[in-house]
């Protein structure tokens, strides 16, 4: 199986990327020098278009590695995969030659009434069997390994026989897919479902993690909501620091989807991640990193 992720993998330097968002097209069209190592594009924004979005993605691809990150694969759906979706994704993958293809570990609704959301499902053997079948189908159709992301949830469905981290680990080991570990989602779930995020983090073998996401949540009072509308919180940076200390080669992405700021603000967020990487693995330690980034000590 051709694995572009492995081929593009360069060791021992921070690989911090940003989400490609239309609001930044005018800036990126000028092909500015950036401190960004790679970009992540939302697959669905480029799968069904021959227009400007695709043109922009191809332009970006000329200068950067690109990951395709989907939101509609619905890999945990009992109705099965949508053949036309997989076909369009394969077409885009062949055009862009991404270094990573990923989606979410969830279902998004029924085909007759798609909720367009990242929905929770119980962590059961039934779900595991279904997912192993679907992951195999997708990886065979695409001709590459995929990454699946842990999602934020606001309820726990009944019947789970695995903790989330046990399910993720078992799934990745048995399917051959890797995990896209969203540290923000991990933290949101830890607070919403009252578990220790460090237990989760330490339970996942780093060799199963193919990418890291960092983002910001919104505290709704009665729960944490995964909004991607703010910078990552200190608690999330702290978890990230623990993770990147163990796994220096994993690509990291700053995600921001709502109230998106100027590109330079995102670059500064990416620089924070680079600083933390340098703190653990760089030749020169940045002594002030903990004070400037974390509210708490490392």
């Amino acid at each position: 199986m051709n694995d572009s992720y492995t081929e593009a993998h360069v060791l021992s330097q921070p690989k911090v990327g940003l989400g490609l968002r239309p609001i930044h097209y005018p800036h990126l069209e000028t092909r500015p020098n950036t401190s960004v190592y790679w970009f992540e594009a939302i697959s669905e924004n480029y799968m069904d278009t021959e227009g400007r979005p695709l043109h922009m993605l191809q332009l970006i691809r000329e200068d950067y590695p690109v990951a395709l990150h989907g939101v509609s694969l619905s890999i945990a759906s009992t109705e099965g995969l949508r053949p036309e979706y997989v076909k369009q994704l394969k077409r885009l993958k062949d055009r862009i030659e991404p270094w990573i293809v990923s989606d979410h570990l969830c279902w998004t609704g029924l085909q007759a009434s798609n909720l367009h959301d990242l929905l929770p499902f119980p962590y059961t053997d039934e779900a595991l069997t279904l997912l192993l079948k679907h992951i195999d189908q997708v990886q065979n159709a695409l001709g590459c390994h995929i990454l699946l992301e842990n999602v934020s949830t606001y309820l726990q469905p009944p019947g789970s026989s695995y903790a989330e981290w046990e399910f993720l680990t078992t799934l990745a080991k048995q399917s051959g897919c890797k995990l896209l570990l969203d540290v923000n989602n991990l933290y949101v779930n830890a607070i919403n479902h009252r578990f220790d995020p460090v237990v989760f983090l330490q339970a996942i073998p780093t060799e199963l993690i193919g990418q890291i996401h960092l983002a910001g949540y919104t505290d709704m009072g009665t729960y944490l909501f995964d909004t991607h509308s703010k910078p990552a919180y200190p608690e999330v940076w702290e978890l990230f620091s623990k993770l990147i200390a163990r796994a220096p080669d994993i690509p990291v992405l700053i995600e921001w989807d709502d109230d998106i700021p100027e590109f330079s603000v995102l670059e500064k967020e990416a620089q924070k991640a680079t600083q933390i990487w340098n703190y653990h693995h760089g030749h020169t330690h940045t002594e002030s990193v903990s004070a400037s980034i974390f509210a708490h000590s490392l």
Binding site: L155, N192, G221, T222, L224
Partner: peptide, 10 residues
Amino acid sequence: SITPGKDLTS
């Protein structure tokens, strides 16, 4: 049957 997150009701 669901378990709501944090301080939410079902």
